[in-house]
Design a protein around this nucleic acid. Structure first.
Lengths: 161, 161
DNA sequence: CATGAAAATTGCTAACC
DNA sequence: GGTTAGCAATTTTCATG
């Protein structure tokens, strides 16, 4: 658990302002950020370095257009498990993590046990993915597929206020 | 529609290799990428520039740790609409887009109409969010809340193969 | 201990070929 | 696409409150 580390962190309002900028555009240069938050470029860089080191900034990534890469379809799959035998559940999680077509995976409470976001070139590829990660597993009782009509909001931004 | 533009795009295997690297870590320097894909740093830069301009690289962002910002809880909310009156639906979409606690929103087919991923400091804040964006709307028939126990996979990575 | 200023380094950009 | 020169941004150093 990372609670111990988090207890050490102290994020002030200037940090929050910097983070708000970087989670929209991580290529914003330190000088511009400094102008925004009222700090020198060097001071901004030092804060960013600290935020990276203490894990507040998890990573910096390029967000790609799935369509440009031929991934025309997105699906939300709701997975219901037969029962929750610990080691089988772990096996399942590993499959989700390893499969690059499984973009997202949340383990949740309630009627549903897993929520998956899956991307695929077409229906045939999606079928192949579900067969690979869901059908071949006795733990999976059933799953319902929802075709995504519109990826209204796909960001990973976090409220910084 | 962007199909016309996409038809112009031609992404080869080297581009795909570069994209695969950048979507894990957008701060990877061109020289290192070049070593990986067998190109000079300048050539890599030129390709990245092109991929940004043609929209294959949508944007570059910092991924933050929600817990470091006090957002301890995540929810997956499945929304069912009363009926699909176009302008009310548009109003709803706008709410989802504007609310910074709504991290993700997918419009889907099937029994469900919207899938939302919502982050909040605690249950009280989550309740406030749902009241704000869901309760005050006649279009929403009902919604089911799923508390996220584990954010197993949260990336936005796209298969580049 | 965080800051700002300035030097030193690194990485990017834009010409060439 | 490679090479190189010039530039931009980051990183380090150092003095200051």
């Amino acid at each position: 658990m990372l609670s111990a580390y988090r207890a050490v962190m102290q994020i002030d309002d200037v940090d929050r302002a910097i983070l708000a900028i970087l989670q929209r555009n991580s290529r914003t240069i330190a000088e511009d950020i400094g102008a925004e938050v009222g700090l020198s470029a060097a001071a901004v860089q030092r804060r960013i370095k600290r935020l990276r080191e203490n894990g507040t900034i998890n990573r910096e990534v390029a967000v790609l257009d799935p369509r440009a890469l031929g991934q025309e379809m997105t699906f939300v799959v709701l997975v219901e498990l037969e029962r929750e035998r610990a080691h089988l559940l772990e096996e399942l999680r590993r499959r989700f993590l390893e499969d690059e077509h499984v973009q997202q995976c949340y383990c949740v409470t309630g009627q549903i046990d897993f929520v998956l976001v899956i991307s695929a070139r077409d229906m045939a590829e999606f079928d192949a993915v579900t067969r690979r990660v869901l059908f071949d597993n006795p733990t999976v009782r059933r799953f319902t597929t929802n075709v995504v009509l519109d990826r209204v909001k796909v960001g990973l931004t976090v409220p910084t206020g």
